[in-house]
């Protein structure tokens, strides 16, 4: 028996907006602790991790661990139909994930479960020299700014500032932000702007983002719900000078 009820439909909507742009299919794992998902895109450039603990839900019941494999595009199409004020209920039957949106009316969708042969990948454990928090909106603005001049983004942090910058053929752009955190080293890596943009589609998950940066290391970006019960995080492989 699996049943999860959520009053904030935006959590799923915003998470899967990002997830569905990164991976075509996912294996969600449900157990008594909550729901989680680990997925790696086809070209192994982006890793995504979603964790929604029991406490995120208004009601949560899962008697035995189960795997819920779905096509992310199909799921996203359905989630887009949820209204902000709808209660979302997730259940599963023999071959479907069932989503019910309860508002003015009760609207029910079934999404066919798919076969996924492989095991969900586990995230690599990396040691980072820096960790700092920035407002999510600043990241969102930065990618718009950088997009004017380039399709790559250089992220740099030092004791004082976090900088997003790019040098393009026709011009340059730089965004500086005083992070106000204790950082003792500086770090810089370059990323594909398109890939960063995919992760930042999850713009309603959290107001701030925790970034971990190293030199020519993957970007670790974590969005945490205020209650600490939910997390959406990403790892993005850098572009490295050849």
């Amino acid at each position: 028996m699996f049943k999860a009820v959520l009053s904030d439909s935006n959590i799923l909507k915003t998470s899967f907006d990002a997830i569905s742009s990164i991976v075509d299919e996912v294996q969600m794992q449900a157990d008594e602790e909550g729901l989680r998902l680990d997925a790696l895109d086809r070209s192994h450039i982006t890793f995504v991790h979603l964790e929604l603990k029991k406490g995120v839900f208004d009601e949560y019941q899962c008697d035995e661990p189960m795997k819920i494999n779905v096509d992310t595009e199909e799921l996203m199409k359905v989630l887009k139909r949820a209204k902000a004020e709808d209660m979302v209920e997730l259940t599963v039957d023999e071959g479907n994930l069932i989503l019910s949106f309860e508002g003015e009316a009760r609207r029910k969708f079934k999404i066919r479960l798919i076969d996924i042969e492989y095991e969900a990948p586990s995230p690599p454990q990396l040691e980072y020299p820096t960790e700092f928090e920035v407002p999510f909106s600043l990241l969102k603005d930065s990618i718009q700014d950088i997009g004017i001049v380039s399709d790559k983004i250089s992220l740099h942090v030092n004791e004082e500032k976090f900088e997003a910058s790019a040098e393009g053929e026709f011009g340059d752009a730089k965004i500086e932000y005083l992070h106000g955190e204790k950082i003792e080293e500086s770090a810089r890596s370059i990323f594909s702007l398109e890939k960063v943009k995919e992760m930042l589609k999850a713009d309603k998950f959290s107001e701030s983002a925790v970034l971990r940066l190293g030199n020519d290391m993957p970007l670790n970006l974590a969005l945490k719900m205020a209650s600490d019960e939910g997390e959406l995080s990403f790892l993005l492989a850098p572009r490295i000078e050849s």
Binding site: H44, I45, P218, L235, A237, P238, I240
Partner: peptide, 12 residues
């Protein structure tokens, strides 16, 4: 000129 790396190099 940089090139896109994959996470595989960092997975181990």
């Amino acid at each position: 000129q940089e090139k896109q790396t994959s996470l595989d190099a960092f997975f181990n």
